[in-house]
Amino acid sequence: MATISVPDRPTRARGIQFAPPVRLIGIGLLVPLLGLAAWTVGARQGWVPPQILPAPQVVWDTFLELWQSGDLLANTLISLQRVLFGFAAGASLGLLLGTAMGLSRPFEAYASVLFTSLAQVPALGWIPLAMLLVGIGESLKLIIVAVGTLVPVAWNTRAGIRAVPSGWFEAASLWRYSRAQVVWHIVLPATVPQIFVGLRYGLGHAWLALVVVELLASSEGLGYLLVWGRQMFQLDVVIATMAVIGAIGFALDAALAAIERRLQRWQVASP
């Protein structure tokens, strides 16, 4: 059978998630299983030196050991706490800023040049400056995570508000809606999807920024565990920590996606 060919079912429409035929679903496990087998055999036969790639069993044992000693949980909780606080701060500021820029043309005219130029520097680029200004304590982590969150949230909020048809605002002024009512009844429901796009990006950026800042200056957290594993030449610790970082990144995104679906249902249901 040809592998590159016209798909069996050419009726697929754009945007619909492509589902492989049922007989192919289980096949996705094949590659990881083969990889794991090669990894196990390779480690046992000494094809790759253990300092380059420790055996899966070793990684698993390390994971259990880190878990049982409480190190993994403690560091994970610290990282989660940092990311949530930083995200909350950055998202609130981003929402405020984005709403203000979206609703008020004059405000946008004043703020956009500064905001756009500052937004060009990624959170990563702010770290050394922030270190000079606030040191390497908890506030550094919060600031960097917040900076990472703020930009996408503000952009998307502003874009969402801009996308509200102007007729709706005219209607609102006919109904003599107050500014608060405009925001609550018109802007908010119409912009929720776009705001959520921003929040999901923001959370993704927040998590990335946190790992970076913990790699650079930290005495605890998952990023620190990575550094520790690297310096102590324990790649099993590194790999176990990477797995946790991946799982949390996935869980954070999935949680926001679930909320998003729920809100969209609410939005459809509301008049």
Partner: peptide, 13 residues
Amino acid sequence: KIVNMDAATADAA
């Protein structure tokens, strides 16, 4: 409370 850093970073800190 041990903070892990290289020599240059430690001087700055």
